[in-house]
Design a protein around this nucleic acid. Structure first.
Lengths: 218, 218
DNA sequence: AAAAAACGTTGACAAATGTCAACGGAAAAG
DNA sequence: CTTTTCCGTTGACATTTGTCAACGTTTTTT
C-alpha cells in the first residue's frame, strides 16, 4: 500500500529511514492534502498521488535548484529546512524564502514557464523531500480531478501570503516586519540564523541585531 | 449577440456609450481571454462568458471597494485607472496596486476567503469596468471548462509578478526599483502622479523626486 | 475670472539603515 | 582536544531615506 515498494526501488535509502517511516511520510502528505481538499481523497486516489511523488534527500548545503537551471521539480518538505535566494552583482545573497516542514519549495516562475531560474535553492539542514516532476504533476491533475481544487486552494493561499508580505515590505518599518514575522512564524526564527532572517526581511544582520535589542528593552 | 440587450437592461447608460461600444468592449475582453487560452473560445462559450459580466462605471474618486467590505466583485478595466491602497494608523495611504486598461482589480484575499478587506480600491480616473460576482464566476467555471485553464494561467502570471515585485522590494534600492518600474510599465508613470508612484514603490514623494533628478543627470 | 486644491520641487535637518572593523562565544571540522 | 569557521553583537561613521516647511506651478472647483 502507498507504493512502499516503489519507494524502496527508487532508492531513498538513508539508513535512518525504514519502511515504517515511508508510511508515515505519505500519511503526512495525505493529511496535508486533505486539509486543502473539499472531500478527503479516497485510498485509490491517494495511491495514485503517492506514486507520482518520489522521495529525495538533501544534505546540508546541497542544492535543490541552481541559478540557470530550469526548475524540474516541486518539493514538499517532510523534514528539514530549505532556503531560496538570489545573488546580486556584488555577490550578496538575498533570501527570498525560508521553508520548513509542510512547505513546498521550487521556483514557480521557472517551473511554469520552463525558463532558467534566477534563484538558488539549497538545504540549510539535512532535508527529506517528496518531489514531483512537471510531467507527473500534470498527469496527476488528469487522473485525480480533485487535485485541481486542492492545487487551486494552495495557489490562492500562496498568492495571498505573498501579497501580504509585499504589502508589509512596502508599508512597514523593519521593526514592525520583524515583529510580524516573529508572531506569524515563530518557528522560522528558531530554525534559521539571524543573518538569514535579516536578509529575508530585507535588512542587514547588524540592523536586525539592533532591532531585536530595542524590542527586548520595551 | 454578446448579450447586448442584457447589458442595456443592466443599466450601463453613460451617455458616452452606445450599442457599438458595448460590442467593442466585449471583443476586447474576448481577445484578452483568448490570449491566455490554449484554444480560442467558441462563439457560444463567449456568449456565456459575456453574460456573466456586467458593465459598471466609476467616477473619479468613487470607491470600487472600501475597507471593511467583502470584495464581491472582480473587475476588468476596459478604460480608466484604478488604485488599491491601505491606510495605516497615522492615516497615511500605502499604494498596493496601480491598474489601468486590461488589468483586473479586486482584493483576492477578501474575494476568496469572504473576509472583510483591509484595502480600499477607488477610481483615479473615470473608469469603465466589466465586473463579475463570485457566484457568476464559479458558475462560469462550471459552464465553460476552458475557463479553468485561462484562470489558472492568469493566476500564475499574477503570482509570478507579485513574487518579482517582492524580490525587488527586498533586494533593490529605491533607485533601482524605480528604474525597473519605468522600464517595465512606462505607462503607469504617465497615468498616475508621482506621489502615488512613490507610495507604490514604498518611498516618499520627496525621495522619488530626488531619485528622478539624479537619474536625469546620469 | 477668482479661489482653492493638488502637485512637484527644494532645503535643512532628523531618523533609519548600511558599511566596515573588531571581538568573543558557539558550533563544526579535523 | 584543537583549530577553524560561523554567528551575533557592538562601535564609529557614512549613506539613504524620511520629515517638515516653504514655494511656485498647474489643475480643479467655485
Amino acid at each position: 500500500m502507498y507504493n512502499v515498494l516503489l519507494l524502496y526501488h527508487n532508492g531513498w535509502q538513508s539508513p535512518v529511514y525504514n519502511i515504517f517511516v515511508y508510511l508515515h511520510v505519505f500519511e503526512y502528505l495525505r493529511s496535508y492534502i486533505n486539509r486543502y481538499s473539499a472531500a478527503p481523497l479516497t485510498d485509490q486516489e491517494f495511491e495514485i498521488l503517492s506514486s507520482a511523488f518520489q522521495p529525495r534527500s538533501l544534505r546540508k548545503k546541497q542544492y535543490f535548484l541552481q541559478e540557470g537551471e530550469v526548475c524540474k521539480y516541486m518539493g514538499f518538505i517532510v523534514k528539514g529546512a530549505v532556503r531560496q535566494y538570489s545573488v546580486d552583482d556584488k555577490g550578496v545573497e538575498h533570501i527570498v524564502n525560508l521553508s520548513i516542514e509542510n512547505w513546498w519549495v521550487g521556483d514557480r516562475e521557472s517551473w511554469v514557464m520552463l525558463t532558467p531560474s534566477v534563484y538558488n535553492i539549497d538545504a540549510w539542514e539535512d532535508t527529506d523531500l517528496l518531489v514531483i516532476t512537471r510531467a507527473d504533476f500534470l498527469g496527476l491533475l488528469d487522473s485525480v480531478p480533485a487535485m485541481h481544487g486542492i492545487i487551486k486552494s494552495l495557489d490562492e493561499k500562496h498568492a495571498i501570503a505573498t501579497q501580504k508580505r509585499l504589502t508589509a515590505s512596502i508599508s512597514f518599518s523593519a521593526e514592525k516586519r520583524y515583529a510580524d514575522l516573529a508572531s506569524r512564524y515563530p518557528e522560522l526564527l528558531q530554525r534559521f540564523p539571524q543573518h538569514l532572517i535579516a536578509s529575508y526581511l530585507g535588512i542587514t544582520k547588524e540592523t536586525l541585531s539592533r532591532v531585536r535589542q530595542r524590542s527586548v528593552k520595551k
